[in-house]
Design a protein around this nucleic acid. Structure first.
Lengths: 117, 117
DNA sequence: CGGGATCCCCATTGATACTG
DNA sequence: CAGTATCAATGGGGATCCCG
């Protein structure tokens, strides 16, 4: 006796997984920040601030913190004078590269689709 | 004479492309909605409303509209009584499947990474 | 230099009710 | 059923200043 067809568990699981990913990558800036660090391998706070057009230091600080909590980036304080801080991707963070590449390709294709059709 | 190393144009382009993708997929709900429609092939408004846990009808309506504008989904009104509306992915929308799959896999891996380490 | 603290605005979203 | 309308709240995010 089941009026409603059983919810497909597999699909539910997938949706949660996708959501997990999106939660980690949420906000306007995360992907751009990762992309910047990834491209230059190691990158300082103020450099990223320049790379990511439009972001404020407050936001950058916040986003970097979240990325660090999620173990996507590693923060290193160099005791220069004045202090400099370097960010780099962790191994785990590097596994995002495939997704970023896909998003890049899709973004280009989408742009064409919308404006050239 | 160039004090600062020339900004890599290629990287800038990539970042814009990724951003374009993320703009299309922004918000908490877009991916879940797409995932729902994709999984069932065709899906009605109220069905999606049930699939996507937590979304309000106002939000769903808005998100669907945006997805339609970006030509990712197709909206069809069936003249039943009362009216039903079906949503399905366009061909263009279907090209997101790779990304969704990647995000799914990565989400699972990330979850493991964070909670099992 | 790399942030933290504060102030403040307005866009996003939720809740609820209503309509064709 | 598939939305729309309206009101209200919240918090994202900018601007600015400050500090070790």
């Amino acid at each position: 006796m089941q009026c409603q067809p059983r919810r497909n568990e597999e699909h539910q699981k997938e949706m949660r997984a996708v959501q997990d990913s999106m939660d980690v990558l949420n906000g306007k800036w995360k992907i751009s920040i990762i992309s910047s660090i990834c491209y230059y391998n190691k990158r300082r706070f103020s450099d990223i601030l320049n790379d990511v057009v439009g972001i404020s230091n407050k936001m950058l600080s916040k986003e970097l913190k979240e990325l660090e909590i999620n173990q996507l980036i590693k923060r290193t304080v160099l005791d220069t004078q004045p202090i400099t801080v370097q960010y780099e991707l962790t191994e785990h963070g590097l596994t995002l590269k495939t997704i970023i590449n896909n998003l890049t390709e899709w973004g280009i294709a989408h742009h064409k689709k919308i404006f050239e059709q």
